[in-house]
Amino acid sequence: MRAPENPFDRVRVGRVKPSERTCIGMGLRFLCFLASSLLLLFLFSCSSGSSPSGTGFLYVATQGDSTVTPFTIDLSTGHLSANGQGAASGSTPSAMVLSSSGKALFVANKGDNTITSYAINSDGTLATGSSTQCSTGVSPVNMATDSSGKFLFVTYLGSQLDPNQPSAICVFSISNTGLTQASVVTFAVPSPGPSGVAVTPDAKFLYVSNRFDNSVTQYHVDDSGNLTSFASYPAETTPAGMALVTAKNNTFLYVANSGSNTVSGYVVCLAVNSFCANADGTLVSTGSTFSVQLGPVAMAASSDGAFLFVVDQQSNQVSQLKIAGGSGVLSANAPANQKRQKSSAEANHVGTFRIK
């Protein structure tokens, strides 16, 4: 029997120059970084079916020209092709997420505090976007949607001490590409600094990492999208991106700690088991914190929950970790990390991604 393929067995890494692409093969999905003469790609999202062949779509948001550009991916080779014209975003796009249906794309813009919504055409191109703004909150930094596509959750980092730059968590109801504000949680100064965000598939529990006070907050989400703070958990230094992973009937939450260069793991209590006395969404530490490279800020897991990939911004690397499905404990997946060389155009921007 053929041994399972290491998701990074097929890796091509090179210097990123204007108009060049460097693709890192991740099994049948691909992470691609694109530089322009002004600014590097810092964020993208992939959408495809479960088949290893066929065509997928990739979307690149560039801050320099505030544009989202679509590409097609040959899922058997990873080759990219331009796919129509780019669509205008708001100012300084900072986060991106696909709807659960794969028919809508949402982009957060920290320069003007807006969310741009796009319909995805059948050929992967984007319709002209429409803009939505939360009633409060400055500098949207992360977004998440539940598996049913009912809500979009957006964290606004704001300022720790300036009340004129409020931090917030805004919840929008989703209807196709339309967004309607359902609720908002605002924070008085000193703000905890809501940053990373993850939601359980049933949209009952929301988790937010707080980069200013080094914590993770659990919220209950009601049917109307209102949030109620339920519990707070200590995190390591400057928690940032989060990833919710299902592996072997267990659900785990991983938090990238950019200040301590680690990834922390928690069991999410969605069922009574050996870890959890109650199915109330509480977090139980896996007892394992894994050291990665410098400045981890974003993560994504393979669809089978076996691997976790961490973007280490300051060391310009992607760390590859194995997830023990029974315990959630992390270990290195040789080779432990992949170096991505950068050009002067990249200016410390980072790729974040979603794998389907």
Rank of each mutant, 00 (worst) to 15 (best):
V350M: 10
A301K: 10
D223K: 05
F30A: 13
T217L: 02
D123T: 08
V272S: 06
M1C: 04
S274T: 11
F71A: 07
G281W: 00
V97G: 10
T286D: 04
L330V: 11
P70C: 08
P335Y: 01
S232F: 00
D312P: 02
P335R: 02
G25E: 02
V97F: 11
N249E: 15
I73Y: 00
N348S: 09
Y118K: 12
S344Q: 11
K342S: 04
S302N: 10
S76N: 08
L253Y: 09
D74I: 03
Y156R: 01
G25P: 02
T22V: 12
R211K: 08
F57Y: 15
G14C: 06
S122L: 09
L270D: 09
P192S: 00
T136R: 07
P52F: 15
K342L: 14
S131F: 11
P335T: 13
V138I: 14
Y219K: 07
V199F: 10
N261Q: 11
Q293V: 06
P163W: 14
S331G: 13
S47P: 01
S260E: 03
S229D: 03
S131T: 15
S344H: 07
Y156S: 08
C269A: 07
V13W: 00
M26L: 15
Y118W: 13
Q314E: 14
F42D: 13
G241H: 11
M96I: 15
T238R: 10
A188W: 02
Q63T: 14
M242V: 11
N109I: 02
D9S: 15
V329L: 05
M1Q: 05
A347N: 10
G351Q: 12
S260V: 02
V272E: 07
L31F: 11
T177I: 15
A3N: 08
T217S: 08
C276R: 04
G129V: 14
G84C: 06
N250W: 03
G259I: 01
G90W: 12
N83A: 13
G27D: 15
S37V: 11
V171N: 02
T352G: 12
H79K: 09
Y156V: 03
V329T: 11
L161K: 12
D213A: 01
N337L: 03
A332M: 03
N261R: 09
T352I: 13
A336H: 09
N249Q: 15
K17P: 00
T352P: 02
F353V: 13
S130Y: 05
S344D: 13
A182N: 02
T128Y: 07
F153K: 05
S89N: 10
T155E: 04
T145R: 07
S66D: 15
F71S: 01
C23H: 03
S117M: 12
T114M: 05
G158F: 03
L38F: 02
L39Y: 10
S36W: 06
T237W: 06
Y233L: 03
T177H: 07
S274H: 12
Y207I: 09
